[in-house]
């Protein structure tokens, strides 16, 4: 009984101690928490989603960015149009390259921030171009990768090179010779648009398909 009373007094004293010691911290945490929350409302990055994980993917945020840009970016279409149907029996020929209604006229593939992975919606486009290459083994193509201005320049060169490499890898699976394609990583050196916002950045994160003689 005696030990119990003593123990309980200790518990009370200790808990009081801990409470007083921690109360200040709690206040601090809550204030910083609120400020970060505010700032994140308008941020494009995925810091909130990924929390502290260093290896987290940027997919979720990247996709949401795409949809936003899609709605806003009327001046610039970068997704395959309605005619992007796998069953669409279009003419996969050199003539198709100059036909604005042909899927082959679409030659830009966009990427998520700090990612070289191909978004699924671009698979048809890439495969179409690959089929063309297979059809014309003498046809040569450059895959010019680019990055947005964020991050360091040489890292962006490597990132953009990796983007063009991942396009190339998908194409090679469709049959064309790997010598038909050449990859270049330009990094952030050749942006397509000026501007230092999410919209511009998305437009600059790309791989451009360039046929040598067309």
């Amino acid at each position: 009984m005696k030990t119990i009373t003593i123990k309980s007094t200790f518990a009370i004293v200790l808990s009081a101690l801990l409470l007083t010691a921690c109360s200040g911290q709690n206040v601090k945490e809550s204030t910083t928490g609120s400020t970060t929350g505010d700032s994140n409302n308008s941020t494009v990055t995925n810091t909130t989603n990924n929390g502290g994980a260093t290896s987290g993917t940027l997919g979720a945020d990247g996709n949401s960015n795409v949809t936003t840009s899609e709605q806003e970016g009327n001046d610039f279409t970068y997704l395959p149009g309605a005619n992007n149907d796998p069953n669409n029996t279009q003419d996969i020929s050199l003539a198709g390259l100059s036909d604005p209604n042909n899927l082959l006229s679409q030659r830009v593939i966009y990427f998520d921030y700090d990612k070289a992975a191909i978004r699924p919606e671009y698979m048809v486009l890439i495969n179409t171009h690959a089929k063309l290459l297979s059809k014309y083994p003498s046809l040569k193509m450059r895959l010019e990768g680019h990055a947005d201005e964020r991050g360091s320049r040489e890292y962006n060169v490597a990132l953009s090179e990796a983007r063009s490499q991942s396009v190339k890898n998908i194409m090679v699976a469709q049959g064309p010779s790997s010598t038909q394609m050449r990859t270049i990583g330009y990094g952030e050196e050749i942006p397509i648009v000026r501007g230092h916002n999410t919209k511009s950045w998305q437009k600059n994160r790309r791989v451009e398909i360039k046929y040598d003689d067309y």
């Binding site: 910083t32 400020t35 970060t36 505010d38 700032s39 994140n40 308008s42 941020t43």
Partner: peptide, 17 residues
């Protein structure tokens, strides 16, 4: 320091803050 860690798009707001 705290401010410098805030998100980019709220710069003006930040300054006020």
């Amino acid at each position: 320091e705290e401010v410098s860690e805030k998100a980019p798009n709220t710069e003006i707001l930040k300054e006020k803050e």
